[in-house]
Design a protein around this nucleic acid. Sequence first.
DNA 1: CGCTATGTTGATCCATATCAATAAGTGTGG
DNA 2: CCACACTTATTGATATGGATCAACATAGCG
Lengths: 232, 232
Amino acid sequence: MPDTFFEDVRSLHLFSKMSADNFADLMRAAYVQNFPPQIELISEGDPSDFLHVVLSGEVDLFARWNNRETSLATLRPVSTFILAATIRDAPYLMSARTLEKSRIALIPSQDVRAVFDTDGDFARAIVAELALAYRSVVKTQKDLKLRSSLERLANCLLRQQTRVDGAEEFTLPYEKRRLASLLGMTPENLSRAFKGLQPYGVRVAGSQITIADRKDLESLAKPSPLIDDFLV
Amino acid sequence: MPDTFFEDVRSLHLFSKMSADNFADLMRAAYVQNFPPQIELISEGDPSDFLHVVLSGEVDLFARWNNRETSLATLRPVSTFILAATIRDAPYLMSARTLEKSRIALIPSQDVRAVFDTDGDFARAIVAELALAYRSVVKTQKDLKLRSSLERLANCLLRQQTRVDGAEEFTLPYEKRRLASLLGMTPENLSRAFKGLQPYGVRVAGSQITIADRKDLESLAKPSPLIDDFLV
DNA sequence: CGCTATGTTGATCCATATCAATAAGTGTGG
DNA sequence: CCACACTTATTGATATGGATCAACATAGCG
């Protein structure tokens, strides 16, 4: 009944190096579920009962406060989320919702913590994962505090272009309204920011982006590996 | 010659549970240095040669981009910094400077990674530390994206008051100009924000803050454990 | 005690949010 | 397959939070 999601999970850095026994322990009570779009998988403040793994589809991590809401990250297969909360046995800090039909694996948090307590390799894999996640949030914070919204958008487009191997034309992987939220601005402002990038050779048609001259856009964006490079 | 800083370092959660042997390995090439105020200890982009430990004094973590600068965190004794960069053997994402005369212990990063590779307990301690740090940055990001500067200041004051066990009057632990930067605003704007909190019972005299009625201030600040509580 | 850095205040400017209206997609059921 | 409804995107007008610039006050510090 649990289909072949084991391999997908196992393929993650987080789980690939642990012993088969420990992995089996983790998977014993794990299960997979299919969710339609726009389902709130977890809500901030809830106890972290499961470590989640996106197997297919797309998940939005967001946060609410005082009737406001902001998107913090987008997760695509195959990746885990809510690892820090699971480890600390602390409530979720973010909520998560499916953006499209998604398959999510759920691994009981107590099992994760139990294996973590005994398996040094697993602990080390978690360290690598958390350190990467930490650095990623720090970069986002620098982006938010040091750049204007126009600069953030410019750099975001350059990062996207890099992800598609520098192709001059590509499709935005987000709905614009969500992109605005991720970048910390309103949808209206994003529309205007796109226009503001026209003088730098950015063409927008729906979700199709064309960057006529990367150098030109870079002259405005001033990308930095210490903010924009995923791997650093 | 290396004085008694061993115990201070050992007392940290990060090191308290590891074996004496492994701790000795870590300390073998470690050393302590005294720095005057305003010394830049590390610069973003530099390779992470040392894990740093603040033994006394005060350290500012900040970042620069395009001639702008922002403070990201303040470190007080006894705490480590640059752990994620050390673990990943990646360049620092933040710069650090002493704010006052400070004693800093420097532990070679390669030793940290070596012990990390063999000592599961140490790896687990690092996980706990990183998970906490990660959650702390996420909270800051929510604060930045969901709140206005007035709300950020109000909540910051409430957090400070909590740190001093709810005393009605306390001293700001930061220079105002740095507080402004931490909160993502200009010094001028911070001045005005303090005035904006007067109607909520906040009195400011230099760095002395008086909160006449916490409830009143909370009605504006709407503090949330998922943003403002250190431990959650 | 004076110098320099920090903090305050006021005037103005600018970026971004908000509000409102329209247009363009997207999906659904007849 | 089209028509309708609903959501998303754009555009314009306006408001406002926050930045900038400039002057002055204040407080540390040598």
